[in-house]
Design a protein around this nucleic acid. Structure first.
Lengths: 219, 219
DNA sequence: GGCCGTCTTGACGGCTTGTTGACGGCGAGG
DNA sequence: CCTCGCCGTCAACAAGCCGTCAAGACGGCC
C-alpha cells in the first residue's frame, strides 16, 4: 500500500489485516516501487495524491517490470484522470470517499486474477545460482556477496527474463528519475555483476548488452 | 454486450464501434450466455437490470465455463450489490450514469487482461518471429539482433499491418521532422531489415515498397 | 580518528552503429 | 528508343556507445 496520509494508512491497514491480509506500506512513490521489487506483493494499492511524484508515473514504474494488480485510490473523480491512470497500467480506480466493503471486494477481484502469475525466485547464470527471495548467490558452492545496488539492478533484469529492459528504466528504478543520462553507472555495475556471476565475464552469455537500448537477461 | 435497454445498447454500440471494437448484443441473460458460448467475446459488458434473471446469476453462469473479463453496469450504487456482483466473478462494476471515456478505459483494462497483454505484440515475417514487447527476433530458432533505429522503423510498420505508411511519416517518427527528404535512410534500413527478416531479401514478401509513396507491412 | 567497503566520477581504446555519397537497374512517360 | 526518377546495393567515414581501469568521495564501524 502506497499512501502518504498516515491516518488512511492506519485505518486501511487495520481493515485489511482483519481480513487476513499482510500489509506492507510505503509513504511515497520511489520507496513504494523499491519495496514492491524487494518483496513482491500480491496486490498494490496506490494513492494518486503523493507528494514526490505523479501517481501515474508510479504506475508506469511498476508496470515496467511487473504485472501485479494495481488498485488506484484518488480523491479526484474526473474521468480524464481515471483514463490516464487506467491506460498507464492500473487495474482499477476507486474514488474517495469509498465504502470499505467495496474496496475489499475489488481487492479480492485483483487478488484472484493475480494468483495466476507466479513469481519464481531462483535463477541460474552459468554456474551461479541466484535466489531473489532468500537474497543469496551461490557460485560453485561458494557464497557470493552482492551490494544493495547490485541486487536492485539484478532483480529488475531477472524479473524480465528474455525481455529487453531499457537503460532509462533501469536508471529510473535504481537511482531515480534524475539519473536518466548516467549510463556509466550501468556500465560500471553490469561489469561488476558479470564479474561476480558470469563464467566468462568478458564474454557474457546471460547478462547481455543491447547497444543504445538497454540490457537483457537471457535464461 | 448484454442489456435490455435498446437506447443504451445503440449508444454503446456506436461508441464502441467507433473505437474499433466489434460488438455483439443480447437483450437478456439467457441469450447473452448462449451468444457468448457460440462466439466467445474478448470482453463481456453486462447490465445488471435485466428482466428475466438476476444479473448476478448471469455472471455465475458465465463464470462456470469461461474466464472472459466481465464488466458490470448498474444503476444501483449500494455497495452490497457491488460486492455481490464482484464476488460472483465480475471483474469491474460501473455505476450509471457513467462517463463514456471512463467506460472505454475500463474496457481496455479488461481487454489487455484477457489477451494476456502481449498477444498483440508478436508478428511473423516469413520464418522470423518478432516480439515487440520483449524486443526479440527469432529466425529459424536463431536469435537475430536489431539496432535501435531498425526497431523504431520496424515497429511503426508492424503497428500498421496491411496499411501503407508514407515515407514522410517514417522519417518524421524515426529521425525527426527535418529529415523529410532523406529517403536514402529508408532505402538503407529497409534493406537491412529485409536482410535480417525476410526469407528472400531480394524478393520481399512482407516488407513491401510502394514506389513514390512509402512502405507497407503485409502480414 | 582511522579503516574499509561502497558509491560516484572521469578518461581512454575498440567496436558497433549511424551517416553520407555514388553507382547501376528498372519502369514510366515522352 | 531515350530520358528521368526512384529504388536497391555497396563502400567508406564519422560519431556514439560500451567495457575497462583507476582514483576520489562518502559513510558506517570499530
Amino acid at each position: 500500500m502506497i499512501d502518504d496520509d498516515p491516518q488512511i494508512l492506519r485505518a486501511m491497514r487495520i481493515n485489511l489485516a482483519a481480513h487476513g491480509y499482510h500489509v506492507a506500506v510505503a509513504a511515497d512513490g520511489a520507496s513504494g516501487i523499491r519495496a514492491a521489487s524487494a518483496q513482491p506483493p500480491d496486490v498494490v494499492i496506490l494513492d494518486l495524491g503523493l507528494p514526490d511524484v505523479d501517481g501515474v508515473d508510479v504506475v508506469s514504474g511498476l508496470r515496467g517490470w511487473t504485472t501485479v494488480p494495481i488498485l488506484v485510490l484518488s480523491g479526484r473523480a474526473d474521468s480524464a484522470q481515471k483514463v490516464r491512470a487506467l491506460d498507464s497500467g492500473a487495474d482499477d480506480y476507486i474514488t474517495k470517499p469509498f465504502d470499505i466493503a467495496e474496496l475489499l471486494a475489488r481487492v479480492r477481484v485483483a487478488a484472484r486474477r493475480g494468483h495466476g502469475g507466479d513469481a519464481e525466485s531462483v535463477f541460474r547464470i552459468g554456474s551461479s545460482v541466484v535466489d531473489l527471495a532468500a537474497r543469496t548467490v551461490t557460485r560453485a558452492g561458494e557464497q557470493v556477496r552482492l551490494t544493495k545496488t547490485e541486487w536492485q539492478l539484478l532483480e529488475i533484469l531477472l524479473r524480465n527474463p528474455g525481455r529487453l529492459v531499457s537503460q532509462r528504466q533501469l536508471l529510473h528504478q535504481v537511482w531515480g528519475p534524475r539519473y536518466d543520462r548516467e549510463t556509466n553507472y550501468l556500465r560500471q555495475y553490469l561489469a561488476q555483476l558479470r564479474r561476480k556471476l558470469e563464467d566468462n565475464p568478458s564474454r557474457p552469455v546471460h547478462l547481455l548488452t543491447e547497444p543504445g537500448m538497454g540490457y537483457r537477461y537471457r535464461p
